[in-house]
Nucleic acid binder design. Structure first.
Lengths: 355, 355
DNA sequence: CTGAAAGCGCTTACAG
DNA sequence: CTGAAAGCGCTTACAG
């Protein structure tokens, strides 16, 4: 049966016949030429070139169990944090001779599980970014294929963690110093380790500094979700808000602008990731999560695991870095600001009543 | 030989033994269940689930000549246009049972060529988004593997084009109606078909409406590039600018804000793509490029090509859609605006002289 | 409807 | 140094 109208590729047998050697010899001429005499290698290479032969990677993968492929699974390609991370990972994998599969789980636990299963046979290992999957399932997959997790702290699994405890604590301190005494933290998916870590960091910092803190959930970390939670945010009376990431922070700022509230005059906003932060106006106070570096390091860690026979579990930590910019500041005073805030409060109250 | 310390994945033989059927039957239960009785299929499926069996795609690929993989190659994962496109494509590929390889050419022609070569053996076809590669090389790759191009109009190659001629013409008309008589178009990579198309559309619309138009190059379509060209932009005296995409438009707006110039009061700005446009403030007047749909359609077109024996070259066009928002408007008059613009002009002049 | 068997293109112990 | 042969995990005509 002809598989397609495309030209069929030359096989190892055709080269063997042409060169007058065995298929084993042709194989060695490509994968272990040092086992052969120079003459044999040359003869085989000449035939290969004549026939346009290139070793079939699929057959090689089936035979050796090594594919030269890595799968990269993220919850949302559209989120700048993940696209930056993918960019770093992809480039590093390519530099090390590996090709990358891309899986977008769409923040969906079941889909994440399916992708891992489906790709397992075709890759030498996985990089699983910010998994939403439960620990047990991750362990199950890790038992079958080398797997490096990003931003999830699971014992016995190689992982790379962007630690934002220090930087979020610093962010709270920064806000305290600006005079804020009531703050909100707008979080993301429950299953997100980063979210848990940040919520906790902000909570204990709030304790430490003796300020009031309200926790709000955005569910999915997106611009829309950030925008949608502005109502609940304002009803808390917070004058400063820390968001799980820049996207949510941006959404919050948009939502505030729609109510004619200004940043940082009426409310200070802090994000996290530092991908879109400098493109915003006002530029966003945030935490640099070193996304591209994190992606590249994950690949390094995975390849290191692959090259070792012993399964060593490594735990690498990258520290987030607090960066103060223009979206945080002291509260604006004066009559105008007061009027603005009162009006916004009115709108919120109306919204609440209409429900 | 044991390939690694990982547990070996379940194979078709293990399932066959467990279910008490032949390997052929297990195979059919997954690839052609309609050939089997319902009972047999259920029995096999149950065993498969119990053993955690997933058909090995590599073995399947070797046997059938079809890998179930598609490679997606883009110039820049970080660009929202491409990440949205990838998202659409990835989801559609997954829905149709295909896994996707990801290649980021980093706007680099040679790298694009290498990626195509390296992945060719492992995929059933390619989706090549906004290639920077020359036509001859694209043709060479298309001769070996089915290939669908996005946003490049190459005869005899299946392609999907986002046509923005109508919408950019409309954008110019929109600006003319607002009273603008001098405009600029800030373009992107020379090799970008979209860029050429838009530049041309704007040029002929300018002729048609009898207005003055200046063309500026941003080289790489990015926020930074947009920001960097604000100097040359202002020195043209343009009161409205159309950018190759939203990213560049956003950069321009940032650059203007840094000079204390407001949008649209001092300058009107139009972008293209409509991915980040609604997240901006002021919300960006732009052209919706239907990115996700474009990605999904490209996959459909490729799979359609794959399922046909005859190599039919299709040319699908998706029309961009002009959307007026808050970043375009009439020029602000009054003394304050005049002062602002004069100051900016001064700064520009100083910059120009210091070179 | 189901099974036995050949085959996809390669690699790799095992002999010689 | 080289070859014969088994095997990687699946699919698919061919029988029955």
């Amino acid at each position: 049966m002809i598989k397609s109208d495309k030209a069929r590729a030359a096989t190892i047998s055709m080269v063997a016949d042409d060169a007058g050697v065995s298929r084993a010899t042709v194989s060695r001429a490509f994968s272990n030429p040092e086992l052969l005499t120079k003459e044999t290698v040359e003869k085989v290479r000449a035939s290969a070139i004549r026939l346009g032969y290139v070793p079939n990677q699929v057959a090689r993968a089936l035979s050796t169990g090594r594919s030269g492929n890595i799968a990269l699974i993220v919850p949302d390609i559209g989120n700048p944090f993940f696209s930056a991370l993918m960019r770093g990972a992809q480039a590093q994998a390519y530099a090390r001779g590996y090709a990358t599969f891309l899986g977008d789980s769409d923040e969906n636990e079941a889909l994440e599980d399916l992708l891992l299963g489906k790709l397992a046979a075709q890759v030498d290992g996985f990089v699983l970014a910010s998994p939403r999957l439960d620990e047990q399932r991750i362990r199950a997959h890790a038992a079958l294929k080398p797997l490096v997790v990003i931003n999830r702290d699971i014992a016995d699994i190689s992982r790379i963690l962007v630690d934002t405890v220090g930087s979020f604590t610093q962010a709270v301190k920064h806000l305290v110093e600006l005079g804020h005494t009531t703050m909100a933290y707008v979080g993301g998916p429950k299953a997100s380790w980063s979210n848990q870590q940040r919520a906790q960091a902000v909570t204990s910092a709030a304790h430490q500094y003796g300020i009031r803190l309200v926790l709000i959930d955005a569910v999915r970390p997106s611009h829309e979700a950030g925008r949608a939670c502005v109502g609940s945010l304002l009803s808390t009376g917070a004058t400063a808000v820390l968001a799980i990431d820049d996207l949510v922070a941006q959404g919050i700022i948009s939502g505030l602008a729609a109510l004619n509230l200004s940043v940082p005059g009426d409310i200070s906003v802090v994000g996290c990731d530092n991908i879109i932060a400098t493109t915003m106006y006002p530029s966003l106070t945030t935490v640099d999560a070193h996304c591209a570096e994190t992606g590249a390091k994950a690949i390094d860690l995975l390849l290191q695991t692959l090259s070792q026979q012993s399964q060593s579990q490594d735990r690498k930590v990258i520290n987030g870095e607090f960066i103060a910019r223009a979206s945080t500041g002291p509260l604006a005073h004066g009559e105008e600001a007061f009027t603005r805030r009162s009006k916004a409060a009115e709108v919120i109250e109306q919204l609440a009543n209409s429900k």
